[in-house]
Every structure is written in C-alpha cells, then in structure tokens.
Design a protein around this nucleic acid. Structure first.
Lengths: 202, 202
DNA sequence: GGCAAGATTGAGCGATCACTCAATTGTGGT
DNA sequence: ACCACAATTGAGTGATCGCTCAATCTTGCC
C-alpha cells in the first residue's frame, strides 16, 4: 500500500446503513451520504461503486446484523419458541431505547423498491425469505423438542410470524406510546407461545 | 364556464392514485404523472397545485375507497367479528385478482415518508389511526352483541388487527404463491375469530 | 361572427440529481 | 531524500428534477 485510506470502511458502512435505513433509498441524496460518511464523491465511488452499490452493501450489513442478534438471543433463550416470542418484544425495545431507527429496513426496502426488476428490492425480498427460513428452522427445532405438536408446519408458522413482525415494525412508525407498543408486542408474542402443546411447560 | 376542462378530474385522480400507490412518492416523477394522466405540467399544477398536493389527494382517495369497501363488506357480513376476519382474507383476494396493486398505500407512505415533519407522511399515519379507530368501533360492536367477552379491549384488539393487516400486505410484496398467501390470511383471520366467547356461535 | 374568460400548452426556468476525472495529496520502499 | 503509486479531492458533467408563465386555444354569450 502506498497510501492508507483515511476513512474507516466499516464505520462508513454503518453510517450509510443508518442513513438509508431511516430515509430510504430515493430520499437519500449523495449530498446526504457525503455528509454522513464525511467522504467526497470520488472516494465514495472508488470505495462503493455507486449509490446503488452502497445501498446494497448497507442492506446486506443490516441483514447480517439482525441475524447475529437473533442468533445471540436464540442461544440465550429458554426454548426455541420463547426465542421467537422474545424476538417480537425485542423490536419494540430497540425502538424505545433509541428513537432513531424506525421500521425494519428489509420491509421498507421491499415496499419502496417494489419494482419487479431492480436488484436492490429483489435482494431485500430474498433476505426476507432467508429470515423466514431461519424462523422455520427454529419452529422445526421447537417441534423436535416437543414444544410444538407434531402436526405443526414450520414454514407456515414462519410466514405467520414474519407477517406479524413486519406488521409490528410498520406499526412502530405511526405509534409512539410505549405502553401501547409493548402491549401489542406482548399480544403477538402470546399468540406464538399459545402454539405450545396444551399443558406443556417449556 | 367558458371552456370545459377536457380531462376527467375523477379519472385523473384515480390514475394518480394507482401510480403513486405502486411506485411511491419519490420514485414517481412528473414525467410519469404527465404520461399517466395525459396532462401537461401547466394543467397538472392548475388542477392539483403541486406534486405533493396531487399525492395527498391520491392518498385521501385511497383512504376513502378502502373505508367504503370495508363498510360495504361489514354491512354484508354475518357478524362484526366475521367482517374483520373477512377483511384480512380480502386483501389477499384483491392482490390475486389484479396483480398490479401491491401493499397498502397508507403503510407504504408511512414508511417511505417517515420524516416527522412532512405533511404527506403525517397524513398517512393519521389515516392509519382513523382506520384503527374504525376497527375499534367494530370490535366494540362485537362485544356489545355478545360476540366478545366483556373484558375485551376494543382499542387493543384494533391495534393487533391493524398490525396483522399491515404485516400481511407487506408480505404480499415478497410472496406470490396463492396458496401460501391464502393460508397466511386464513391463519390470521382464525386468530381474530378465536377471540369469540368459547362455545358461542356468531 | 366576434369577444371575453377560462383552460391548456410546452419550452424552458433554476436547482439538484448521480456521477466523473484531471489534479493533488500522502505514504512506504529504497 | 526522493520517487512511484494509491487514494482523495472537488469542480464540473449531462440529465433530470419539480415547476412557471407567456402564448395559444376553446368555449359560451351577445
């Protein structure tokens, strides 16, 4: 190397993720990006190829971060089903801890870039499918452990859970009252826990 | 009158609604609008004031249309609770009938225009609150008719239902398989119907 | 038929968009 | 100390953005 990059690529990607997450793709201009990353256009394009390229890196980072946190909480949970219920409540808590980050970036992107062609939107939807597959695997684990009846369909339950999570995060955008949000998350989480074998304690 | 407007304002607003609904606010340019409405810039601004003004008219129209359809289906339903469950399934059917319209425009707008200031986003969130109030009134009606236990909290159930509907419509964007979508809507609808008094037939 | 009023027209406004590249700067190797 | 090279810089690219307004056209009325 003849000249070290003065910027921290990891930090820059974090800031880009935060920016795109809160503003969306179209509402974020290169001027915004220059200011947030403290980089000039030339450097941005040398490092990330294009606005679209930077966005997709930010999206991938968001996906990976979310999955890491989920895996951590799953490992710490009392049972698979508890982890899934906890995941619903967790979305409300991060929103209340830090008012900045709004609804799920994958859901936002899937809606904003709804065009069938268009790489970024398709990627967001692909990530959402991977999340659903992860949920399905955890439901399958819960079934194998006897936490769910044998008749339970993991894929089906995963879709149901994902729809609830996305609905919750959209709801986070229009409602700010902590009590209402926690109550909603609890109600949704209770529906997940109600799938348990009757009379079976986890 | 000295010269009749050659365009049909109602038709133009319909087309604008359809356009903004599918593309969102930022991704829709005036060129798109000119083409969709078959109007020139001057006429558009004379009739609708601005792009923002047109969008808000389209949003209001969307809200009114949705509520009209909801009221119609409520009037035709066997019971209030059945109407709310039916409303979930209905979202899937309109999506399958006509592949063009994607997720709920109010939810999309609430996410895309998430900025606290900004009239259009705030209006979308206000409409969502009105929808929730409508749901709450129907839940209250169901309770009054003995379809729900006296302990049921209409506002709370309304938030729960709205979150599920929004989650379902976001899900419509990433999944196309009719069977999976119908199953998901049925699962969500069944959760609503399960609120009924045990052993009480509506 | 001619006129006044209302509505449409579309070229073009300044601003901003995403993006480029010749010039400059900083660094490690010798 | 100096050089070769990687990386940054930022003025400036053409395109497109939302929008305006003087000119034009169409209608109803007399």
């Amino acid at each position: 190397m003849t000249r070290a990059a003065p910027y921290d690529r990891d930090l820059a990607l974090d800031r880009a993720m935060q920016l795109f997450w809160s503003q969306g793709y179209h509402a974020t201009s290169l001027k915004d990006i220059e200011a947030a990353l403290d980089m000039r256009p030339g450097s941005i394009y040398a490092a990330f190829k294009s606005k679209d390229g930077l966005f997709r890196l930010a999206l991938a980072r968001y996906y990976r971060r979310m999955m890491e946190v989920f895996d951590d909480r799953l490992a710490a949970a009392e049972s698979p089903l508890e982890a899934l219920a906890d995941w619903l409540r967790f979305h409300v808590e991060i929103r209340l801890d830090d008012p900045a980050p709004p609804a799920c970036m994958l859901a936002k992107t899937s809606l904003e870039l709804a065009d069938i062609d268009g790489e970024a939107g398709a990627e967001a939807r692909a990530y959402l499918r991977e999340v659903a597959e992860r949920f399905a695997a955890v439901f399958a684990l819960a079934r194998a452990r006897g936490e769910l009846p044998d008749s339970a369909d993991p894929e089906r339950l995963a879709r149901l859970l994902q729809a609830k999570i996305m609905g919750l995060t959209v709801f986070l955008q229009r409602e700010a009252d902590p009590q209402a949000l926690r109550q909603l998350a609890d109600d949704l989480a209770d529906e997940v826990l109600a799938l348990r074998h009757p009379g079976k304690a986890a």
